[in-house]
């Protein structure tokens, strides 16, 4: 069936209500294309969406999906994948969902290394609540709740991920459709937790981190001699505050997923009609 799947099969018939020009359109298109390209179809794909503008993605895509509690998308994705490892699990949310309210889960999802893909649609602003500082907003970024700027350094999500033992760290830009899709595809194919921070500009509330800004400043790692399997090289790129990079920054080639480590292989939805045949053994243990 997968050979017949087109990326539009992953599109629902619901029209997005994102602002015209929102980066999330491009982010979602790349995700759908990458899913189709990697041989998935809507019936074996599970999308978990966070809360915020980005969280609407679950409605606009066609697949099995859950749009849950703010910040908890990664735990939901973890449960889905472990209960049925045959499913392709993709988690998508915003920078607030992932790095603020869900930051604790982010760190632990990274170190757990469950085989799923996590796309953070990073616009460096809270859009749905109409323009407040996010954890990735710049130190001097003025908003309704931070009139003089947050006066604290933005979170460096890739550094967090690297410190937590990430096996796949990448950054993409929604407007660079081809590269964005390629990078997501690599994250899907990665055996473990594929983390992609995707710059997905907010055209309504963020006049600093704009399309023009990213177009002008992003350095594509594929145009450099960067070796993504080199931890130290990755660390240098991630901690380099003078530049923003795009591409696969780090990938541990011999990554072993949580499921493999723990021998989680079964589709747990299939159970017998009654207690297991040898269940009385469980009782006899208490003699």
């Amino acid at each position: 069936m997968s050979s017949e799947v087109r990326f539009t099969d992953f599109k629902s018939d619901k029209q997005p209500t994102w602002c015209p020009g929102c980066g999330d359109f491009g982010t979602m298109n790349g995700m759908m294309k990458a899913l189709a390209e990697t041989g998935n179809d809507p019936d074996n794909t599970f999308v978990v969406a966070g809360i915020g503008c980005s969280g609407k993605i679950g409605t606009y895509m066609h697949s099995y999906a859950l749009h849950g509690v703010h910040g908890r998308a990664l735990p939901v994705g973890t449960g889905v994948k472990l209960a049925n490892p045959n499913l392709e699990v993709m988690v998508a949310g915003g920078d607030g969902d992932g790095y603020s309210i869900g930051a604790g889960h982010f760190v632990h999802a990274v170190r757990r290394n469950v085989d799923m893909t996590y796309v953070v649609m990073d616009n460096r602003i809270y859009g749905l609540t109409k323009g407040q500082a996010s954890p990735t907003s710049r130190e001097d970024f003025q908003t309704s709740t931070t009139p003089e700027g947050p006066k604290q350094p933005p979170v460096n999500p890739m550094a967090l991920a690297l410190a937590a033992g990430a096996t796949f760290i990448a950054q993409s830009f929604s407007s660079d459709a081809l590269r964005h899709q390629e990078i997501i595809q690599k994250a899907i194919e990665h055996d473990g937790f594929g983390f992609v921070n995707t710059f997905s500009p907010c055209v309504t509330f963020n006049d600093v981190d704009t399309y023009d800004y990213f177009r002008d400043s992003l350095v594509d790692l594929q145009d450099t001699d960067h070796d993504s399997s080199d931890f130290d090289a990755a660390k240098d790129k991630i901690l380099d505050s003078s530049k923003e990079y795009m591409g696969v920054i780090y990938q541990e080639e011999d990554s072993v997923s949580y499921e493999q480590q723990h021998g989680v292989t079964e589709n747990m939805s299939e159970i017998p009609d009654g207690a297991p045949d040898d269940a009385m053994d469980l009782v006899r243990e208490f003699y």
């Binding site: 735990p75 939901v76 472990l82 209960a83 747990m268």
Partner: peptide, 16 residues
Amino acid sequence: LSAINIALGAARAGAR
């Protein structure tokens, strides 16, 4: 917070 959401995810996948 995570525990109940992981459990919820597994239930969405069809597990008890």
